[in-house]
């Protein structure tokens, strides 16, 4: 399952996608995130799955634009974010990379 956590508002789209087929529930994403955006637990969107999976912490989902800013400095190209880097199976991706819009 491609679980898209985040939102879209007037200013843009801000989604972190977790591919639950690739996620092995290892939890390596938790530590590197300076804003504590990730958690590991049972898959809340697939009640019949038994293995744990990563998800974006519910309270953080509506603030991603701002929470992710420290890892996405304006005007500078970012190759890989700490959460993406930590995820060996490559399950995590972001829908936006630059704060600089114009």
């Amino acid at each position: 399952m491609l679980a898209n956590y985040g939102y879209k508002d007037g200013s843009g789209e801000y989604f972190i996608t977790i591919d639950t087929e690739k996620c092995n529930g290892c939890g390596a994403c938790i530590e590197p995130c300076p804003e504590h955006c990730f958690q590991i637990g049972s898959d809340e969107n697939d009640p019949l799955r038994d293995e744990p999976v990563a998800a974006v912490v519910p309270g953080q989902r509506q603030k991603l634009k701002y929470l992710c800013m420290p890892c996405k400095p304006a005007g500078r190209a970012v190759n890989k974010l700490p959460c993406e880097e930590a995820c060996t199976p490559g399950a995590i991706s972001h829908s936006w990379y630059h704060v600089l819009q114009r």
């Binding site: 491609l2 956590y5 939102y7």
Partner: peptide, 9 residues
Amino acid sequence: ETFLMNDKC
């Protein structure tokens, strides 16, 4: 298979 949810705005 895929979902996205917007409950912020």
